[in-house]
Amino acid sequence: MSQFERDLREALRHREPPSGFADKVLARSCESVTRHTARPWLAVAAALVLVMGGGIFVQQQRQHAEDEKAKEQLMVALRITGSKLRNVQARLSTIQQRAVERQSNP
């Protein structure tokens, strides 16, 4: 019998498990079942957090879009207002110019 065969036989030799091994395995098995029953609650909590977070994010995005729209409207309104006021200013300048011309050429 070679050394290799001896080592193999030794490695595969039947050994008795330590005392209480079966009880430990059963205890671990029960713990594992308890952990599994706790996971659905965690999943529900995570889903709630995700839904709430998503809702807040969507709300913020919607608010931002409304603010952007208001900004665009404000810019348009101010441009139109500025344009109208500049027209008035131009007309007043023309009137003033004509008055000056009349005074210089009576």
């Binding site: 952007e68 208001a70 409207q73």
Partner: peptide, 28 residues
């Protein structure tokens, strides 16, 4: 037609978004 209605809160939120570094927006 162009119809614009901006109340106090909308003017404020719109103004807050205006970029002070952009010429047109800074003036606005």
């Amino acid at each position: 037609k162009t119809e614009i209605n901006l109340d106090s809160s909308m003017v404020k939120s719109a103004s807050d978004l205006l970029n002070q570094k952009k010429g047109d927006e800074a003036a606005a």
